[in-house]
Design a protein around this nucleic acid. Structure first.
Length: 211
DNA sequence: ACCCAGGTGGCCC
DNA sequence: GGGCCACATGGG
């Protein structure tokens, strides 16, 4: 129980309004974006996504049969492009062979799908949760660097284990994908807009954080 | 010339 | 379980 999680959400929503996340049109595009954005500025991801679209390769069926060197060139601006190309193509092949399309995979029971995503190389907890929530509509709270910074401002240990921190947020509210979606999106909005560095507390224009 | 960005996996202890 | 490192480009 944390007495600030609710008020902070309210303040963020009042300030910024609904965020309409994830910035991507289809479940597959969201999954691709989630992998590409790992430890990378979203601005760079936008370039790669556009480039893939231009080449008609932002499509699971096209991606599995594409030339890896072609994908690498398109994905280059995000960095880590060798790894990310391999992981994108592996993921695409896995989903296509096993389910045909990602919607089918995401159709399963939440924790079972989460385990399956986590078993794939290149998909860790944050990426799995982003895909589950934003591409699949599952009631999962995503923990990222911005979320940890926010946690640090309201008396929640920001350095605790991913799943423990996730449980803190999830246990505070009804398990509502719409709410989890909005809350996390608002946290990122605040982080991008206001505080790129350490704690979000200092001079925050939205909520009077106190140490 | 630094430092950071919506992480992850591998290896070590 | 935790601490360090490589992965790589683009923008401040």
């Amino acid at each position: 129980m944390n007495n600030k999680l609710g008020p902070v959400y309210q303040a963020l929503f009042d300030k910024f309004g609904p965020q309409h996340w994830w910035p991507g049109d289809s479940p597959w595009e969201i999954a691709v974006g989630a992998i590409l954005t790992q430890q990378v500025a979203w601005k760079n991801v936008e370039k790669a996504i556009s480039a893939l679209k231009e080449s008609n390769l932002l499509d699971i069926d096209e991606m599995v049969s594409a030339d890896a060197e072609t994908i690498k060139e398109l994905v280059r601006p995000v960095g880590f492009y060798n790894q990310k190309t391999a992981r994108l193509m592996d993921f695409a092949l896995y989903v296509k062979n096993r389910y045909g399309k990602i919607e089918k995979m995401l159709d399963g029971e939440t924790l079972r799908v989460r385990s399956e995503l986590l078993s794939l190389k290149g998909i860790g907890r944050e990426t799995a949760d982003s895909i589950l929530l934003y591409a699949g509509g599952h009631p999962i709270f995503v923990i990222d660097a911005y979320t940890r910074r926010l946690a640090g401002c309201i008396g929640i240990d920001p350095d605790q284990d991913y799943d423990d921190l996730k449980a803190v947020f999830e246990s505070e509210f009804e398990r509502d994908p719409k709410l989890f979606n909005e809350y996390h999106a608002l946290i990122v909005r605040l982080g991008k807009e206001h505080c790129r560095t350490k704690p979000m507390c200092e001079g925050c224009p939205v909520f009077p954080f106190r140490k």
